[in-house]
């Protein structure tokens, strides 16, 4: 009942989903099984018997009307839904011999997943740049009238922005590279 739990935060980049899957699998081999995903990168594990479980991540922004059908299809194929963080859907399945361990079985559908992810990331980048232009372009923290608290807030915000935007650019570039590599495989 009161099984030991362990909360862990682990950052992962948009293009490193396979590394994340491998890590979750290693955790299950040491007896720590993913119990829930709170926000992205924030996991709760529960201790149990060590076993080999494969984890697979799908990227699927909310589609409420289709959700039941989507979930049913996975469950019928033997996959258990663990949770969702920022549109990443976490699925797992105990490894048994002769059982399929992939949720995507052809290059086209793998490509489609990364294209969904790229569209989402790219849209967010454009949105960030747009908002940044409105909020910070005329350097509001050096204006003569504002209170120090508001100036400081603007400055911190601008610095955060200056960090986040390049990160998103890297993510978009990495995803584009990933998609190109997959396209080469599709002979």
């Amino acid at each position: 009942m009161n099984a030991a739990t362990w909360k862990r935060t682990r950052w992962f980049w948009a293009w490193q989903d396979e590394k994340e899957e491998a890590w979750l699998e290693e955790m299950s081999q040491t007896g720590w099984h993913l119990r829930s995903v709170q926000i992205p990168c924030r996991y709760t594990f529960a201790i149990g018997e060590p076993c080999r479980t494969v984890y697979r991540l799908d990227f699927r922004p909310a589609d409420k009307a289709q959700w039941q059908e989507y979930r049913q299809l996975f469950e019928d194929a033997g996959w258990e839904y663990v949770g969702e963080g920022s549109a990443w859907r976490y699925w797992r399945k105990p490894v048994a011999t002769g059982e399929a361990t992939e949720i995507f079985t052809d290059t086209e559908s793998k490509l489609a997943k990364y294209e969904r992810l790229l569209a989402f990331t790219g849209f967010f980048l454009v949105f960030l740049v747009f908002m940044g232009t409105i909020l910070f372009a005329n350097r509001p923290w050096v204006r003569s009238d504002p209170t120090p608290a508001i100036s400081a807030m603007y400055l911190v915000g601008a610095i955060l922005y200056a960090v986040i935007i390049p990160l998103y650019m890297v993510a978009v570039a990495q995803l584009v590279r990933r998609i190109r590599r997959l396209k080469k495989q599709a002979l």
Binding site: R56, L73, W79, T105
Partner: peptide, 23 residues
């Protein structure tokens, strides 16, 4: 799920379709 099983048998085990792909 019926489709997944039937693909497996029709293709004599050479092709399997995962739920992400089928969806």
């Amino acid at each position: 799920y019926g489709v997944m099983q039937k693909v497996e048998s029709l293709s004599e085990g050479t092709v399997s379709v995962g739920p992400g792909t089928l969806y």
